[in-house]
Design a protein around this nucleic acid. Structure first.
Length: 764
DNA sequence: CACTCAACTTAGTACCACGAAC
DNA sequence: GTTCGTGGTACTAAGTTGAGTG
């Protein structure tokens, strides 16, 4: 059998990302660049998949081949992808991924996600977390399935408003969405302070939601805050071209300052960056400037750069008063522009400042890095607000592009950005009702998935055997999304963005198959750049059937061909929608993240631990999720050093401890000798001292462990976006941990709904 | 379908204010 | 008082999703 597929191994090759992209771990270095014969590729495409027979599926084989299956050849859907590939092949050869600190999943946390892994325990201080869905027993699955019961909101709120059911989806019976008038009336009569306080306490989650698709009924705001106008450089600060000073006109000078400000960033050494910058810069020049300045290498921005450095230095040196003044001014702007009135409530706006002009910095190997992000003017701005509200005024002498009154959307201001021509928005803060409701709903959808995930899993397992290629691909992709928490993976337009992929857009070059690896069978090695060009690297054993399917998918393909050539996110999501209302690929991430947290908390929290140790356990549980979701960060620049100082402290403490112990011993023998009260007291005192130092030491050690484990893991993203906050709240309540230890102020604001409603027995 | 666009969520990083350490 | 280190935030890029269109 396997004989048929042995080519899989040699042929599948992660060629192109090359060592430049992933420079560290030697083990990934072995990739070769094998996209030599580009010209042939196109032709090969035509023939691809021509021999897709498989012994492995011999029973079905006959039915398979002439039908759908392996029905690669009708290829209509392949077509559109072709055009990109050529280019990719060429570019890849030299493409060097931008030199951001490389991050890898390979940090000692690679999870064992083999189905067999039932157990999960942190391993010698070096976290080791199994796949979420497999660390429970079958029994657990069964139990959980129907255990869920909607919980009541705190009783004292019950009378206030008609309660929404906790089950979001079920509350569409009676509609009675009258604005809570009383709030408003009070507000207008009372002072600002009182109003603010009241707003902070507004429990939107106890009110009815609108069901007609409108997002609000009333919306009033002050519009955006524009970037400050350009201030030309003082004459003494000169720009030199080819060694000669040259005064630039304001527009060109401004763009030059953008570059000057980035001078010590390595971005400015990148060819693409420089090329894009120079091209856009020239557009701002007068024809005279344009004719003179023809080579970026002859440009000397250093005086400008020095000037800005001096300025920022001066800013740091400002007196307290000056700083205070600036702070106050910012506060004033915040008060004026940072809030809006939405449906009788004053709500915080997320980003009320328009993005200032500058040079575009994409992430990863972005083809557009260095391009000029142009200044946004009032004429570019679309305002969205209520018809009957006081409309925001454009700055004197200017006009808005448009004022509209669309309550089917949540944004207040939008404009089109010039790099990708995408639309940017000003929206509300996460603490707002409109964001909170959505967030809550997201977790409810994930909980619904929990109820039917078993069904779905057995379904996709069945589909691995389908005779239709598209269904097999869909099923394998879904398996990855579920098991590995991969993102959906939309297609992207080549040349517009960095070359990154998600599940559906994985290419042949991104996986390697190992029928055997060490003591494991059917190992798949993933190595690709995901969102934000963060590397995903993982080796996992998969089920045989998956493995065989992958071999099938890889047949006769080139490294740059799509692994799932008969699948895209739209197909996948349509399928998911049929399986469960509201189900999309990303729900799996939410679900798996949250369920993992819950399980890990259960497993890792020891009742006897003190608060500190419990928090460490929480962080570890959180970390398991971050690892699952591949949330990485650059190790802080000061990491080594700060670890060092911490270690020094620990050593000191240890010395202290042994000294204290000695003293205790001495006191004890003293007491033995004399047996008097005084010596007894001394013993007690010493004992206490030892205890105290032990505690301090432990605290330090916990801190060190936590920090070490966190070196390149970012907890924030999962905490903010994937973990049902009610799990954390419940955990805090259960173990009497102050919520402040888990969520900072901003987070508490965002999760106010959860903090208010979750009790200690909350089950995700 | 394929393709585009709009809207909204998710993401990492730069930077700075603030409190601890000196 | 000054420096140091760090948590919190602001910023904005980069995803996902679904609707509309031809």
């Amino acid at each position: 059998m396997s004989g048929d597929h042995e080519h899989g191994d040699s042929q599948v090759n992660c060629g192109s990302k090359g060592s430049d992209t992933h420079r560290h771990k030697d083990k990934h270095k072995d990739k070769e660049h094998r996209h030599k014969d580009h010209k042939k590729d196109k032709e090969r495409e035509k023939f691809k998949h021509s021999n897709s027979e498989h012994k492995e599926h011999s029973e079905k084989k006959h039915r398979d081949k002439d039908k759908e299956k392996l029905k690669h050849s009708d290829g209509s859907s392949d077509k559109h992808r072709e055009k990109h590939k050529e280019k990719r092949r060429e570019e890849k050869i030299k493409s060097s991924h931008i030199d951001r600190p490389k991050k890898e999943k390979e940090n000692g946390y690679v999870r064992d996600i083999s189905p067999a892994a039932i157990k999960s325990e942190p391993e010698e201080g070096n976290g080791f977390y199994p796949s979420p869905q497999y660390n429970k027993t079958k029994q657990e699955y069964d139990d959980e399935e129907f255990e869920y019961k909607p919980k009541k909101v705190k009783t004292e709120h019950d009378k206030k408003a008609k309660k929404r059911k906790h089950e979001y989806e079920e509350d569409d019976e009676d509609e009675d969405i009258k604005p809570k008038k009383k709030t408003k009336d009070k507000k207008t009569t009372e002072g600002k302070k009182a109003k603010k306080e009241e707003e902070e306490k507004w429990k939107w989650w106890e009110e009815e939601r609108s069901t007609d698709g409108s997002k609000w009924r009333f919306l009033e705001h002050k519009g955006p805050v524009f970037a400050p106008p350009y201030e030309p450089l003082p004459d003494k600060v000169k720009f030199y071209y080819d060694g000669k000073p040259m005064k630039l006109n304001a527009p060109a000078e401004e763009v030059a300052t953008f570059f000057a400000k980035m001078l010590d960033h390595e971005y400015t050494t990148k060819d693409i960056f420089r090329k894009n910058f120079f091209k856009d810069w020239r557009k701002e020049m007068t024809s005279e400037e344009k004719s003179k300045i023809s080579d970026l290498n002859k440009c000397n921005f250093s005086e400008m750069s020095e000037y800005f450095k001096a300025q920022s230095e001066a800013r740091k040196q400002m007196s307290k008063q000056e700083k205070q003044k600036i702070k106050e001014e910012n506060e004033r702007i915040l008060q004026e522009y940072g809030f809006c009135i939405m449906d009788n409530h004053k709500e915080r706006i997320g980003n009320f400042r328009i993005e200032p002009p500058g040079l575009f910095r994409g992430r990863g190997d972005h083809p557009k890095m260095g391009m000029l992000k142009r200044r946004i003017r009032p004429e570019d701005i679309i305002i969205n607000c209520s018809k009957d509200s006081k409309h925001p005024k454009p700055p004197p002498g200017t006009k808005w592009k448009e004022v509209r009154h669309d309550n089917k959307v949540t944004w207040l201001v939008s404009w089109t950005e010039n790099i990708q021509s995408s639309i940017k928005y000003i929206m509300l803060n996460p603490s707002s009702r409109i964001k909170g409701e959505k967030d809550w709903q997201k977790y409810e959808t994930a909980r619904r998935l929990k109820k039917c995930v078993d069904r779905l899993r057995s379904q996709y397992r069945d589909d691995w055997k389908s005779k239709e290629m598209r269904i097999r691909q869909r099923a394998v992709a879904l398996y990855f999304i579920d098991k590995l928490a991969l993102r959906a993976g939309n297609e992207k337009e080549e040349g517009e963005t960095a070359d990154t992929v998600g599940c559906c857009s994985l290419r042949v070059e991104h996986i390697k198959l190992y029928p055997k690896m060490d003591d494991q069978e059917y190992v798949v090695e993933f190595d690709f750049l995901g969102k934000d060009s963060i590397r995903y690297y993982n080796k996992i054993p998969v089920e045989k059937r998956v493995f065989k399917n992958l071999q099938l998918f890889l047949e006769n393909k080139q490294p740059e061909d799509d692994l799932f050539d008969r699948l895209n996110t739209s197909i996948l999501n349509k399928h998911l929608q049929e399986l469960m209302d509201g189900l999309t690929a990303k729900v799996f991430r939410t679900y798996n993240a949250s369920i993992t947290l819950q399980q890990q908390l259960k497993e890792l929290t020891s009742p006897d631990d003190n608060v500190l140790a419990k928090i460490l356990s929480y962080n570890r549980a959180n970390r398991a999720v971050a690892i699952l979701c591949n949330h990485q960060r650059a190790p802080p620049k000061t990491f080594e050093k700060s670890m060092q100082t911490l270690q020094t402290k620990i050593d000191e403490k240890q010395n202290q401890l042994s000294a204290a112990r000695k003293q205790l011993k001495a006191a004890k023998s003293d007491h033995k000798a004399s047996h008097d009260d005084k010596s007894k007291k001394a013993v007690e005192v010493k004992r206490k001292a030892v205890q105290r130092i032990e505690e301090q030491l432990m605290k330090l050690q916990v801190q060190a462990t936590d920090r070490e484990e966190n070196k390149q893991i970012a907890l924030g993203t999962s905490k903010l976006n994937y973990l049902d906050p009610r799990i954390s709240v419940a955990w805090c309540k259960k173990w009497s941990i102050p919520i402040e230890k888990i969520y900072n102020k901003t987070q508490r604001e965002k999760f106010a709904w959860a903090i208010d409603m979750a009790e200690k027995d909350y089950e995700f």
